[in-house]
Structures are given as structure tokens and as C-alpha cells.
């Protein structure tokens, strides 16, 4: 197993903790929907999966692309819609 990817994973967790601890409670819902959109990064994996030949793999890839796109497009759009509403006095 490649030790580099494990290093990347662990360092990313630490960055995540550092960055997200600073998000105030007011923005916790947009944080959830925004970070959820980021987890739609599996769209990259879904696109790569469509490369694989074979009936089953292709169909799984297509559904994965649909799911991940819903996640990405819906997630970023709804987060923007929410954040637009946060106004000062």
C-alpha cells in the first residue's frame, strides 16, 4: 500500500478540523450542504468508472454520475440560495 495517500488523508483530516472548527453556529446548515456538495467529488470517480468496459460497470457508472451530479449541482445551488439570505442589519 502506498504510504503517500495515507499521509495525504490524515493531513487532510487535520486541515478539515482546523478550518471547520472556526465556522460559527449560524452557518452550520450552509456548512453541511456546502461540504455535502464537496463530497460529490465522487463524480470524478464516477466519470472514470464509465471508462471501464463491460455492461454492469457502465450502468453502475451512469447511476453514479447521476447521483454525484445531483449532489454537486443541488448542493452548491442550495448553499448559495441560503447564504444569499444571511444579511446584516
Amino acid at each position: 500500500m502506498d504510504i503517500n495517500i495515507l499521509t495525504v488523508f490524515i493531513l487532510a483530516i487535520f486541515i478539515g478540523f482546523e478550518v471547520i472548527t472556526k465556522v460559527p453556529p449560524t452557518l452550520h446548515t450552509p456548512l453541511m450542504s456546502g461540504s455535502n456538495a464537496i463530497s460529490g467529488i465522487s463524480i470524478v470517480g464516477a466519470i472514470i468508472a464509465s471508462q471501464v468496459s463491460g455492461e454492469i460497470g457502465t450502468w453502475l457508472g451512469l447511476i453514479a454520475v447521476i447521483f454525484a451530479t445531483i449532489n454537486v449541482v443541488g448542493g452548491f445551488m442550495v448553499t448559495d440560495r441560503m447564504l444569499k439570505m444571511f444579511k446584516r442589519r
Binding site: 495517500i5 486541515i15 471547520i20 464537496i38 463530497s39 467529488i41 470524478v44 470517480g45
Partner: peptide, 15 residues
């Protein structure tokens, strides 16, 4: 073995 997924997934997992 894709760093993009690993980093993003870790960020969301931590969040």
C-alpha cells in the same frame, strides 16, 4: 488511488 477524492472526503468527514 485518487488524491482529489481522498482530500475532499477527509474534509467532509471531519466537518
Amino acid at each position: 488511488l485518487n488524491n482529489g477524492l481522498i482530500i475532499s472526503g477527509a474534509l467532509v468527514g471531519a466537518s
